Simulated scan of single mutants.
Amino acid sequence: MTKFPVFDGHNDLVLRLLRGDVTAEQVTEGLHDGHIDKPRAQSGGFGGGMFAIFVPSPGNKAVRHEEMIKPAYDIPLPEIVSEVEALDWTDRGFAALEDLETAGAVRLCRTAAEVETALPAPEMAAVMHIEGAEAVDREFERLHTWHARGLRSLGPVWSRDTVWGHGVPFRYPSDPDTGPGLTEAGKALIRECNQLKILVDLSHLNEKGVDDVARITDAPLVATHSNAWAVCPHSRNLTDRQLDMIRDSDGMVGINFASAFLRPDGRMDAEFELDIMLQHFDHLVQRLGEDRVGLGSDFDGALVPAPIGDCSGLPALVEALRSHGVDDGLMAKITHGNWLRVLRKTWGA
């Protein structure tokens, strides 16, 4: 797998650390559950990716998953999280990532060149990402401070509303046109991210929010962990019109491994073959081109296909792609090359 190290658009390992489920030392030495640790990353060729700092909503995630097994569902957006609560989680998230680096699990990266250098290393390349910007202040002082600390990617919303914009719900079947887009404050946030060269993540934004970002940004449009609505008509997925906008901006999409966003029936059920992922791959390549598709697993934040299981199972996906006719050149692009390209173009280094 060293020939095709995977740079991944999204994972939620940091949330496990913040909840006290695991320690940085355990991630380094190896775990018996979850999706990511250093030994399994080395075994599966997981070279690193965007490590999300995420503030969870109150409530039981298992209840949401139970709803998402049904033939149709419409789960209301969670309540807004306060800035005070979000700030505590976010500050601890930065510290958790730094602890992972100290423990030898990751190598924090601030440029595309650093990512490229780190991909063959024993430590995972880690880019600091905020998913849901509730902790960002209106004057953007914290955004500048966190950028200096290493923040290089940000999603204005998760699937709940913020002062910046409106999240897309977990709804099937549904298109992503589910409500208003960015607020005026949210539009200012996009401009500030452009100034700092922070990647703006479209995943979890609804259709009007994506349109707003497209009108404002001077950077490539990127959805770090999203799939094709034409294959799975879930509100979290991207329509062909949105994919065409991303293509025209020379951006990219990371294929999300979450079962409910892959399966045409929208069910949160991991028992299916990887040919469903290949359907998304084919559609995304058809709309975006070979240079604009990568992987965005959502490891440690989603129920992933059973044939993959965790990051040590990535060779199964590589083999499926190989059997599907993907040659070495395209494989290198899909596993890491396209991410390196768009990061260079967004960050300027």
Results as ranks from 00 to 15, higher is better:
G132R: 08
R149Y: 04
W164P: 00
G155Q: 04
V127T: 10
G167D: 12
S159M: 05
H166E: 07
E134M: 01
W146E: 01
L154W: 04
V168Q: 08
W158N: 03
W164T: 06
L143M: 12
A118Q: 00
P176W: 02
A121L: 13
G165D: 07
E116L: 02
L154A: 08
L151V: 02
F140K: 09
P176V: 10
T117M: 13
R142C: 03
R171H: 15
P173M: 10
W158Q: 05
E131T: 01
T162H: 08
G150E: 05
L119T: 04
E134H: 04
E123V: 03
P180F: 12
T178L: 07
L151E: 02
T117N: 12
P122G: 11
A126Q: 08
A125Y: 03
A112R: 13
L151R: 00
A148T: 11
E114P: 09
V163S: 08
M128A: 15
T145I: 15
P180C: 08
M128N: 01
V127Y: 00
W158E: 11
H129N: 04
D177V: 06
G165W: 02
L151P: 00
P156N: 13
A118N: 01
S174N: 04
V168D: 11
L154S: 03
P169K: 10
E141A: 13
W164H: 05
D137E: 13
G155N: 04
R149D: 00
S159R: 01
H144I: 12
I130K: 06
L143Q: 07
G179N: 14
G150H: 05
W164Y: 15
G165I: 04
P156Y: 15
L119F: 05
T178R: 12
D175E: 09
D175H: 14
F170P: 01
D177T: 07
R142G: 00
P176H: 05
G165P: 05
P169F: 11
E116H: 06
R160A: 06
E141N: 12
A112D: 13
A125R: 11
P156K: 13
R149K: 13
W164R: 07
W146N: 00
S174R: 02
H144V: 15
I130R: 00
V168C: 15
A113W: 06
E114G: 09
A126E: 04
P120N: 05
S174K: 05
Y172F: 15
G155F: 05
R160F: 12
A125K: 06
W164V: 10
V157R: 01
S174E: 03
G167S: 12
M124P: 02
S153R: 08
L119M: 10
F170L: 14
D177F: 04
G155V: 06
F170M: 09
D161S: 14
L154C: 06
P169N: 10
G179W: 14
A113Q: 09
E141G: 01
H129R: 09
M124C: 10
F140Q: 06
T145W: 06
A148N: 12
T117E: 15
A125W: 02
R149E: 02
P120K: 02
L143K: 11
Y172I: 07
A133V: 11
M128F: 10
V168M: 07
R152S: 03
